[in-house]
């Protein structure tokens, strides 16, 4: 962590066990306004757990969460959301039973309709508006979720594995949308395994390993980290 920087979201010294399994021990993550921060790590490393805790949908055993310097005790997603956070889970944000349009309408009712039309065209979901989410493919659902995020323009966006199940071109488009959101001032925190795309849009890399986190710095720094290369990227990974 760089001293003097005001972090949008900070989760520090987080510990969490499920029964006797200790998933996180003293893990931390933080997001900065205008930057994309990416959590990388093997399956089961605890990325989703850490994001859920930071988003207030899961309670940590110990650790501190703060949003713009305010320590949030007993925080819940609903409360954090009122302070400007948005969380897109790994499963899905949107509800299968409703149409895409209903979600956008609900968002507009709460946060105003500015940016909705733009978000629709940016994510190219015009044709999906009257379909129920149930009838959409996995990739389309993620595009709808991202459209909601673009329309909401949250101060902090936590989005878990946004690129999963997307085709290469769609991955690139979606990654660029995350980048756009960051350029508009949002602190974007993301995760995934599509290392090449993610490294190319990120400003900071956090490596989750064995229940703890290593802040590797910029993607360039991360690529220069020999242990990270060896243990996460693998020997075949070239340059980005």
């Amino acid at each position: 962590m760089t001293p003097g920087t005001e972090y949008a979201l900070r989760a520090e010294g987080i510990g969490k066990s499920f029964g006797r399994v200790e998933v996180l021990k003293s893990a931390s993550m933080w997001g900065e306004s205008g930057k994309v921060t990416t959590l990388l790590g093997r399956n089961g490393a605890g990325k989703t757990t850490l994001m859920k805790i930071a988003a207030g949908v899961l309670r940590a055993d110990y650790g501190v969460i703060s949003l713009f310097g305010d320590v949030k005790e007993h925080h819940s997603l609903a409360r954090l959301a009122r302070s400007g956070l948005m969380y897109v889970p790994q499963a899905q944000l949107v509800s299968p039973a409703y149409r895409v349009r209903d979600h956008l309408k609900a968002l507009a009712t709460t946060f105003g309709s500015a940016g909705i039309d733009e978000a629709i065209s940016e994510m190219g979901i015009e044709a999906l508006l009257d379909q129920t989410v149930r009838s959409l493919s996995g990739g389309e659902r993620m595009r709808v979720s991202l459209a909601l995020a673009l329309a909401r323009a949250p101060k902090v966006l936590i989005v878990d594995e946004p690129l999963v199940r997307l085709s290469p071109q769609n991955q690139e488009d979606l990654a660029n949308s995350l980048r756009t959101l960051a350029e508009r001032g949002t602190a974007v925190i993301t995760s995934g395994h599509d290392a090449r795309v993610l490294l190319s849009i990120s400003d900071a890399i956090i490596w989750c390993v064995a229940g703890t986190t290593h802040h590797l710095g910029t993607p360039t720094d991360a690529l220069a980290h020999s242990q990270f290369r060896r243990e996460y990227l693998g020997s075949e990974f070239g340059e980005i």
Binding site: L77, S95, P96
Partner: peptide
Amino acid sequence: RRSEIVFLANLGHSSRK
């Protein structure tokens, strides 16, 4: 069942509310 809890929470509506 309709997995709408997270969506509503994102709008600021807690389960308690």
